[in-house]
Amino acid sequence: MSHSNCHGCSLCLLSCPMWQQRRDVQYSPQGIFKALQHNATNDEIAPALFSCLLCGACDVLCPEQIDITDTIKTLRQTLFAKGGEIELRKNIGSLLTQPVAETRIEANTIILPGKALRSMPDTLTKIQTLLSNETHAAIATDDGDDIALALEAGIHISEQRRRNFLEPLQEARRLYISNAHLLRALHQWLPATALCALGYSLSQLGELTSKLKKSDLYLIEARSFHFDHKQKITHYDQLRYQQGCQTNLDLQCNAIPTAAGVLNTLQPALDATEQGNWILSGRNVQRIVVECAEDGLAMSQVTRQPVLHIADLMEA
């Protein structure tokens, strides 16, 4: 279904952090699509396009089943291709020229942790231990942070860079990926490989989740959750009722995202504090457990309560 199928029911607004912060329909899938139906130029909708967190909550809600996040990414690509968003391009430019490691990794299982988790070596070691069952789980030397950013921003990725990134991963049977944009792209690029969302996989380990307490707020990573909502909601629904912990699920059973994301950090369109406060509002929690390191960083900015990665429950 394309944006021309939008009939303006407004359901997408209900879980949309971009709309919730602005309370202006222009900043919502409905506003973007209605504007396009009335011949808006890409420049006219650019502010909304680049305020979107690509959290995917709207994809779950749209009764017309419009693939909203993909449409927004495509529109971002078109905008960049036509030379728009010059400032953002300048900011992103340096991040895209990352050193490229081409070494093939001799492992069946590889973890792509992303930048934030890399800066938490102890946690990363625990994750490695937790995910090394029959075979050793290796950490990728190149986990494609730049590619993830390009995917999020809608910037062209050179074929050579893409090949360099994929080359070391070709032989692996299973990949654990932290970044949801990368996870989605890898589904197309490596269709034969078992691809797992890192946080979701950790949340399936009873040895970790059994340590969740009633006074915990468990933060589901929104992007990969919404990408596969039908399957994952059953798991998280059971998790919250079995463990009695609170989660960031809203009444629609969508996960309220933090404003974490490289794009929003580079060019803040949404207020990370307001978003964090909304997640915490009215809740009585003593600890926040995250499955995504970036979410952990975002939450530690807004609360004095301890914020820890789910893998760190190994010790607790």
Partner: peptide, 15 residues
């Protein structure tokens, strides 16, 4: 007043 702003409100749920 831009057409894409006013056009957003062209109809109601009845259509």
């Amino acid at each position: 007043v831009a057409p894409h702003n006013t056009g957003t409100y062209m109809t109601d749920a009845g259509g």
